[in-house]
Design a binder for these strands. Structure first.
Lengths: 347, 347
DNA sequence: CTGTTAGCGCATTCAG
DNA sequence: CTGAATGCGCTAACAG
């Protein structure tokens, strides 16, 4: 069933049918109505391939994510898909692990003539996305904190989020706060460590590099890092994590040592993955609002598209501290003092 | 950059370029080589819209899943996407919660001219997918255990999987085994309860309806169901679960009652979601091999497409018991007897 | 206000 | 073995 057939049945030309479908007002109400009836009763379904072929625009946005199995990404994916449905666009999803995968991904996006692309997982060769930029396809990256011609960026405001988290801990009486991060080589990992550092500063707490351990954004990494922290002569009384999976791992590690959370150690995650709430105890975490993030990515895409000069813009997303069950005063609650920390005898 | 331009540069016709791209052997090796060089240096990227428009085939398969956020589905999604990449096909992903969503999903698949569709979440109106069947688009459903013209089905063999699980428990000495299922109205839930029943029979154990509680395939449902089981005058010493999330919830519930797993109660999940392994203790579970399932779905699709008469076929997937840390002998281990069960005084 | 026409890029006839 | 011509469905430009 195509427009010509509809046109034939309605006794008009296919151009008129097209106009009716696209809501052009250059059609008599009466004609439009008549065509609409035929359209409905034939259950007409337009063929987007024709439009894409003609205009090189596909009403689809590409989404590149590093790992669908990570709940943070799958939850983002769900939000992104929902947001796209709102604006009547399709999604071209590609899961990319390595540089070669990114190349294939870019090729697929080019073939499918995407109107824009969101690149999560900020660690990629800029060169690989050159072809996209060249064809003036708007790009949005995450957490790169830089923009280019044709590329906007959405940054998560870890600085303010971690500050909120650290202040929460300090108000409970903690002054020895550790941090479990991501892969140390990754740019985003460094970003988060720096944000943690700033947060300590804002809370008037001293930064102690021995309390900062790398993880790998996954459970086993968090567990191993926690083991290292607990092996310290003077372990932290609270730990902030670069993401929730790390915090899950750390909690596991603490439990294995016979510690109770939050009685013996307080934990704060980052992301607010769905499962955080059902952990035991439920995880206190710095929520990255997924829905808002997805919308912001799309806004950023549309913004970039609109720019005459193609300049990308820097967007920023605030987090929200969600206090649940993994934070409590430290074992021997003390009034917080001006002195950076009070030495305690190792137990 | 299109084929005509390549043809011009190579001094041939676009038909020849097309033949080279598609590996037709009706081209001189020399000509083919020359064209290939131009193709490479121009970094030619074909436009699938043209092909789709011309032939109504899109090299894309639709995937309908109920909930991307559920790790079982997101892990399947990852496997499916990888399998599609192997056969050089695209994926049209739609997340469908309700009947109306399915209608929209079908419409999108029709527009995009998918060559087939995999429908997970077997609870849907058959009528909604009629348009797909009418256009002879192959369909694969999961766990419906019935086929149609143009629709094949892939069933998970819960019967053998649960039997293996129950035998494992019985060999440890359990004879009071509970079951936490899914939504009681759902067809798949009934399927699993029946499979559990058969498993008990195969293990020579009596079926006791009071030990079977509905859940909702998610953590809170499992937790609530476990609470009910533990409130029984004589609770089970082991519980099998319709999926892993339920088992997570049950484990949580048991812990909250001060029970230790597996010392006080043994737990077995179903699915083998990635996080199962990092639970504490790690979950013993009936693995549904995700990768194999994805491949099987695609095989089923291709099979259905090949059938002249369009008859669908029934496929079946075996599970694998993965024994980890949530199963152990019951508190007072006893030799299993021929008598269905030994009454113990309620504690 | 409505119809005619042309062309997006490709693969497949059919000629040569 | 190669090329010319065709049409898939749609919409913008133009003509009426």
């Amino acid at each position: 069933m195509n427009m010509r057939e509809i046109a034939r049945r309605a006794g008009v030309s296919s151009a008129t049918v097209s106009r009716v479908i696209n809501g052009s007002n250059a059609v008599t109400a009466e004609t439009a109505r008549r065509v609409q009836v035929i359209l409905d009763e034939a259950k007409f379904i337009p063929n987007p391939s024709a439009t894409t072929l003609k205009y090189g625009r596909s009403k689809t946005y590409g989404l590149v994510i590093p790992d669908i199995c990570n709940p943070y990404f799958s939850e983002f994916l769900a939000a992104f898909e929902a947001a796209l449905e709102q604006i009547d666009h399709e999604m071209l999803l590609t899961s990319v692990q390595d540089a070669e995968g990114l190349l294939r991904s870019v090729r697929r996006m080019l073939m499918r003539q995407v109107d824009g692309a969101v690149l999560m997982g900020s660690e990629f060769e800029t060169q690989a996305i050159e072809p996209l930029l060249q064809r003036r396809i708007p790009i949005v990256t995450l957490d790169r904190r830089s923009t280019d011609a044709g590329r906007s960026d959405v940054a998560i405001d870890y600085e303010s989020g971690f500050t909120e988290a650290v202040l929460h801990l300090r108000s409970l009486g903690h002054d020895r706060i550790g941090f479990i991060g991501g892969y140390p080589q990754m740019q985003t990992s460094k970003l988060r460590v720096n944000a943690f550092r700033q947060a300590l500063q804002a809370a008037d707490l001293r930064y102690d590099a021995t309390l900062v351990k790398p993880g790998n954004y996954r459970v086993p990494g968090g567990e191993a890092a926690m083991a290292q922290l607990l092996d310290l002569p003077e372990p932290p009384t609270a730990v902030l994590h670069a993401n929730d999976l790390s915090a899950f791992g750390a909690m596991l590690g603490a439990h294995k040592r016979g510690l109770q959370v939050p009685r013996d150690i307080s934990l704060i995650g980052t992301d607010d993955v769905l499962l955080s709430e059902v952990m035991h105890p439920p995880l206190t975490t710095v929520r990255i609002p997924r829905k808002r993030l997805a919308q912001l990515c799309i806004e950023a895409l549309e913004h970039t598209k609109r720019q005459e000069d193609g300049r990308g813009a820097q967007f920023s997303l605030k987090t929200e501290l969600v206090v649940r069950g993994t934070t409590a005063p430290p074992r021997q609650a003390r009034r917080s003092t001006n002195k950076p920390r009070v030495r305690r005898a190792p137990q």
